[in-house]
Nucleic acid binder design. Structure first.
Ligand SMILES: [Zn+2]
Ligand SMILES: [Zn+2]
Ligand SMILES: [Zn+2]
Ligand SMILES: [Zn+2]
Lengths: 140, 140
DNA sequence: GTAATCCCTATAGCGGCTAGAGGTTCAAGA
DNA sequence: TCTTGAACCTCTAGCCGCTATAGGGATTAC
């Protein structure tokens, strides 16, 4: 019927201290308590936490998740905010990929420039790490 | 001849508080001071900070940079550590790219699933954010 | 001499948790 | 019914790599 925090944790994959942290941050509602002050959750808390977890797994920042939760609590409002949040997140992810690809190129070059078998004084890797002029791109 | 911390900052693109933070962390050496207790840097500090900055721009964690600095201070040691650090970082970057690409796919799908022009109750984006079963991959 | 601009230390905060200390409650087995 | 031991509670501090104050002192250009 109702879950302890540990059961909720197992059901969602969210760690117990993290669940308490989300409660403190107002991202999930404070559940009812037993006489001994332990939390007891209902089905809807499970739904909410799964939603939250999935959003986190998609890389959304807490602030965006907060807005999405607000929106789902007001189902008659237009969904334009959800649309914007998804688009923003997609753009942010693409920007990060682009950046990391630049790093990948440079690091592949640097890593291949030495086999790791001579004194540090002559090491091309150390030289490459120290001198951005040897790089092919700006990588930020 | 010697630089103030602000001049060092301008020359390297590292912000003034960040330079002080690096000093506190032992990543750069504490420079000499004026009679009025202000830091004055030399050419070699500039080199060191540039090295550090470039490593950070390549995404290396501080711990790895610490090892690289140690290594460059012992130029007769073998460079195998530098080699390992570069390879590890390359691998880490590739893993992050792979992960982000999964997110990109899911978010592109989610973002395209709604134009943002109806009530939240019917919004496919909100549904997709709430239900991982609709996803195409595991994205962790 | 004075004003503008730098510089100093120290502390707290960011995001998003995670770990620990020190104590209480619950549930299953004897 | 009692006992154990796992799970729970609150509170605080720590993680990374900075960044942003606050409240002062030093330097420099005019
Ligand atoms: Zn080498
Ligand atoms: Zn570079
Ligand atoms: Zn919609
Ligand atoms: Zn998913």
């Amino acid at each position: 019927m109702d879950f302890s925090i540990g059961e909720l944790s197992k059901a969602t994959g969210v760690k117990v201290p993290t669940i308490r942290y989300y409660e403190k941050e107002g991202l999930i509602e404070a559940p009812i308590r037993t006489e001994g002050n332990q939390r007891r959750y209902q089905e809807r808390d499970l739904d909410r936490l799964r939603f939250l977890k999935h959003c986190r797994d998609l890389g959304l920042p807490m602030e965006a998740i907060r807005e999405l939760i607000d929106l789902s609590l007001h189902p008659d409002q237009p969904c334009s905010n959800a649309n914007r949040i998804a688009a923003d997140q997609l753009q942010a992810i693409r920007a990060r990929i682009a950046h990391l690809k630049k790093l990948e190129k440079e690091l592949a070059r640097i890593s291949a420039s030495c086999t790791g078998e001579h004194p540090a004084a002559d090491c091309n890797i150390l030289k490459a790490f120290g001198d951005h002029d040897l790089c092919l791109s700006d990588h930020k």
